[in-house]
Design a protein around this nucleic acid. Sequence first.
DNA 1: ATAATTAGTTTACAGCCACAACATATTATC
DNA 2: GATAATATGTTGTGGCTGTAAACTAATTAT
Lengths: 411, 411
Amino acid sequence: MSPKFTADQAFIRETNLSLVLRLIHSQAPVSRAQLAITTGLNKSTVSSLVDELLERNLVHEVGNNAGGAGRPATMLEVNAQAGNVIGVELGVDFVSVAVTDFLGNILWRKREEANPNEDQEKMINQTLRIVKEAMTVGKKKNQRFLGLGLATPGTVNIEEGVLIFAPNLHWRNVQFGKIFAEQTKLRIFVENDANAAAVAEHLFGTARQVQDFLFVFSGVGIGGGLFLNGKLYRGKNGYAGEIGHFPIMAEPSQTVCHCGNRGCWETYANQYSIIQRVQARLEVKRTSIIPKLMAEQNSGLTIPLIKQAADAGDKEAIDSFAEAGLAMGQGFAGLINIFNPKKMILGGPLSIAGEYLLPNIIEAVKRHSMPEIGQQAEIVLSTFGPDASLIGAVAIVVDDALSRFIQVDKK
Amino acid sequence: MSPKFTADQAFIRETNLSLVLRLIHSQAPVSRAQLAITTGLNKSTVSSLVDELLERNLVHEVGNNAGGAGRPATMLEVNAQAGNVIGVELGVDFVSVAVTDFLGNILWRKREEANPNEDQEKMINQTLRIVKEAMTVGKKKNQRFLGLGLATPGTVNIEEGVLIFAPNLHWRNVQFGKIFAEQTKLRIFVENDANAAAVAEHLFGTARQVQDFLFVFSGVGIGGGLFLNGKLYRGKNGYAGEIGHFPIMAEPSQTVCHCGNRGCWETYANQYSIIQRVQARLEVKRTSIIPKLMAEQNSGLTIPLIKQAADAGDKEAIDSFAEAGLAMGQGFAGLINIFNPKKMILGGPLSIAGEYLLPNIIEAVKRHSMPEIGQQAEIVLSTFGPDASLIGAVAIVVDDALSRFIQVDKK
DNA sequence: ATAATTAGTTTACAGCCACAACATATTATC
DNA sequence: GATAATATGTTGTGGCTGTAAACTAATTAT
């Protein structure tokens, strides 16, 4: 049925602990007195809460702040050493693993090419191998791990830690939670890549304190992390966020999307659409350095290569990005009209070309959104660029630690 | 900054009172014992909460339920006599007012034609006159009023009770809250019409217990009430829900939307698009009863008239609805992909033709949505048809009474 | 008649936060 | 340099909360 929500004293304590911890996280350094004012809680209550957080090593005092008159305040900060976190990002053709401290600072990272089509078990074992390597890093630093987060394309059952279906990987029903828990003995958190990236921006990035924003993950397709009313929105089954499949034109002539339909927005605005635009231009106009770059680097026509050409001032590259930017912006406008968000964050592989896309996205939003709504939305690039989902994997672990006060096993 | 959320004892009590009251509302008749099981609260706590609700006259006992073995349960129900509510719907060309009991049962209602373009003050005075008439009804029944809800098109600042901007009415910054509070001495709640309708469905209609659904309000334009994670989503400024302005086609050839853009989804799926479809058909094909109906009734080409023709089996009318249904369904599919909702509810003036639209909406959703997501969404007609916003105006008052336990002035 | 079962109440209790008084540590002022 | 002013943070009391367990109450099963 509907999720029951009862409250008791333990709930009060947990809510207030979490509130204070999150405020210390987002507004560090702060004093107990400042916390009392911003929360509305009594000074003594704040002291009691902070004492508990200090005891749990989640925060620490960082000297005094002698400002004006009066007793100087003892400033508080979240303790970066509260514990380490492992983040894993599963991509369509790579695996990334990172070890960070509690504040998301990267202590170690590794990326390997991978091929999910070849053999699922092989890729999982590859991932496990890198994870175990990562764990030795944490051990050396004598730190406990708070957990392991895994970001993957596709839809995820976060309670069970199961990847339900990832069209890009052609995977179904993968028990990540179970497999990784057995192999690492850590607490495992599995989340969709765009959702994870959204949490990363909320916790560590450009969307701190922002209650309503969309993370637009653009790459092979376009997915979205919907952060609404101060939390992730997942929909009935966790499928929410398939923003790339709004049918913006259902004529039979349109490109077939990999979802099987025609005229999905993402077919006009994903990375392949840019490659197509460049190809079309190269066929008519040859004054571009792109063919030369491809020959030199023995590379196909890829986004990084087109970006490189644009950096060198190549008009065909720049114009292709501009055109794609307008198409992306059209979808952004529609989403802004629907959501009235404070921010729209562009991330994913395509965001490496953000500087060329963004001005036209903004232009298209201005043109196609309702003025009252469009003016309210800031359109920005992801803080973490192509690493957004990897940091996101870390963020979902940290976010849990900021919320829950379940005893973490000591080492 | 971000809304702080602190918890204290009063909050616990209010949360649990509200939880129990809502459960009694949605699952009546229900016993204390059942409530204890479903909430997870202790039996004694439930008794204490129920005692308080009884004292406040919000619920009442309705006999025993002698089922199997054991002491028979005392069943509880929300007290319809807890207080009356006034609902007001401001339409583009009418005003509706209703008096209901606490369960939303209509005790009295009145609808008058109105013209917002003529004179704002005149229309407000007209509304106030009907409201005062309504209040004499409640007085006769010796009932107190819990409040007055007002549903209006446009964007609303719900804290202040101000209509910010309603393009269809050409109104800006109307202080409904202030005006109505002064004139009626009641607590006033102002809300956007689509949002109000969504609350009505959640509280009294087809979306009871549904956490994630969209109310699609189709009429002159297409607006949406977004009910996500168990509550209304309003966005940063309360503008959220402009689902009609997703640019599904940006070619210069398209119809200009009243938002100023071209190719908005709603221009393919609003009531005017249906009228256009019928007109186009009538120009080529004359075997339709529509011209005859228009002549007989001395009426223009309206949706009710086309509906009447469809009821009589007129192929042109039926086919026009079918075509529009497919266009609506295309947008529904896009929204379903984005939101992964449990339900999509079609309401608003166009919903009187729901039986002709719905099959094609469902067909288009099947065709254009991602199968995993589309299969999850039930697509249904509003329980209240064209009255959804009027009942919604009532619902926002009831919803508040179910949540808050501020002392209501006695009579 | 007695036991079993289920509903609801009473009483003792521990946890939580608010409040007010207090201790602490600095700057401002004379 | 002493005193006042100011701001930070702590301590102890009290009221409110839900929990737990023992209790009463009202029915059916045997």
